[in-house]
Simulated scan of single mutants.
Amino acid sequence: MRVEVDVPKCVASGQCVLIAPEVFDQRDDDGMVVLLDESPAPEYADRVRESALVCPAAAITLTES
């Protein structure tokens, strides 16, 4: 799996960080998404998929390998 984030689309809701903190974080100054791992380990795949689904701005894109 490859993860991409479109930071300008992010609305800083933080749902991705709550669901998959191993893969996503937020900037301290404005709360925008920070991608920690663009190729997360398989054990995080379900949570990363859930993060992409619940993102209110659809700022997370996944490419399955």
Rank of each mutant, 00 (worst) to 15 (best):
R47W: 06
D25V: 00
L35P: 11
L18M: 14
S65M: 12
D37R: 06
M1H: 08
V48I: 05
T61S: 15
P8I: 01
I19K: 00
S65H: 12
D46W: 00
I60Q: 07
L35Y: 04
L35V: 05
E22F: 01
D6V: 05
G14N: 09
A12P: 03
D30K: 13
Q26H: 06
V7F: 01
E38K: 11
C10L: 08
E38W: 00
S39N: 15
E43R: 02
Q15W: 12
E22D: 15
D29V: 13
A45Q: 05
C10S: 05
V33P: 10
P8M: 06
V17H: 01
D6W: 03
V5R: 04
P21T: 03
P40Q: 02
K9N: 11
A57K: 06
C10T: 07
E38N: 13
V23S: 01
T61F: 12
A41D: 15
P42D: 15
K9D: 14
L36K: 14
T63M: 11
L18R: 14
T61G: 12
P8K: 04
E43D: 14
V33R: 08
L53M: 13
C10V: 08
E50P: 00
L18D: 13
Q26P: 03
V33N: 09
I60W: 08
P56R: 11
V17N: 00
L62C: 11
Q15S: 12
A52L: 06
A52I: 04
I19V: 05
V54R: 10
V17F: 01
D6E: 12
A41K: 12
A20H: 06
D30Q: 12
C10Q: 06
V23Q: 01
Q26W: 03
D6Q: 11
A12E: 03
R27D: 13
P56E: 13
Y44L: 12
